[in-house]
């Protein structure tokens, strides 16, 4: 469903992505792990059109989305969430989702899309609150709700579980599994292997802007290179 080859993103002379190859098949969840600064967020930013790439190929459903605008990519059915939430602060939770329901996809009834998105992330009870008044964890879920309201076929999820306790982790993991069962393909970026372990058995480990390893979490934990980049030196 998503095929990325040799993706390069430079900030000045620094190559945050240095030829990353990552692909996911329709209906799957791929875990994306790697130490801080390895380029996971940059990967999502480039694929979703927020940053323009400096080289490589990006195909979504067989169509090149390389250098397309974010809204065009969203309309093709690919959306993402943010590691650091970016809510429409002055708008209510419901209005946040409404923008996405109206502009994200022509299919479906706007009211239904808003309700089902808020329902999926369990934010219905705060829908009249201003987005700025939510906790950071709730704002991440709001970001997920906005993405869901655009009727995505695929989601790129960036560290949605960071800073949550064990119980909340489980709740979010169940939420993602449910969405996946409804047919949404996912790349889930996560620092915590234990969280990825609940979701999938297929993980890519990145380091220094390239994919270093692909396989199961168990294999990853036995791979010398992976252990080295995670433990450092």
């Amino acid at each position: 469903m998503l095929n990325v080859e040799g993706l390069v993103k430079k900030f000045g002379n620094f190559r945050a992505l240095d030829g990353a190859d990552i692909s996911v098949k329709e209906g799957k969840i791929l875990g994306l792990a790697g130490p801080n600064g390895s380029g996971k967020t940059t990967f999502i930013n480039v694929v979703s059109g927020v940053y323009k790439p400096n080289g490589g190929k990006i195909f979504f459903n067989g169509k090149s989305i390389y250098k397309l605008e974010p809204h065009t990519i969203v309309h093709l059915g690919l959306n993402r969430t943010f590691q650091v939430p970016k809510p429409l602060s002055g708008l209510t939770v419901e209005q946040n989702v409404k923008v996405a329901a109206v502009y994200g996809s022509k299919e479906g009834n706007v009211k239904d899309k808003i309700n089902s998105a808020l329902n999926s992330v369990e934010l219905d009870n705060v829908k009249h609150k201003e987005a700025s008044s939510l906790t950071s964890a709730q704002q991440k879920l709001l970001g997920l709700a906005r993405a869901l309201a655009t009727n995505p076929k695929m989601l790129l999820i960036d560290e949605i579980a960071a800073g949550l306790n064990q119980h909340e982790l489980k709740r979010i993991a169940d939420m993602l599994i449910k969405l996946n069962k409804f047919g949404i393909t996912m790349i889930v970026v996560e620092h915590l292997m234990s969280f990825l372990d609940i979701l999938t058995d297929d993980v890519v480990v990145m380091n220094a802007g390239v994919n270093l390893f692909r396989g199961s979490i168990k294999e990853a934990s036995m791979n010398e290179e992976v252990v080295e980049v995670f433990l450092g030196r």
Partner: peptide
């Protein structure tokens, strides 16, 4: 809805574009 999309852009244009707003 057009006005709502403008307010969304004013709040955060990247978030607005990812909500599908041109």
């Amino acid at each position: 809805n057009f006005g709502l999309s403008l307010l969304a852009i004013k709040e955060d244009h990247i978030t607005a574009s990812l909500a599908g707003v041109n």
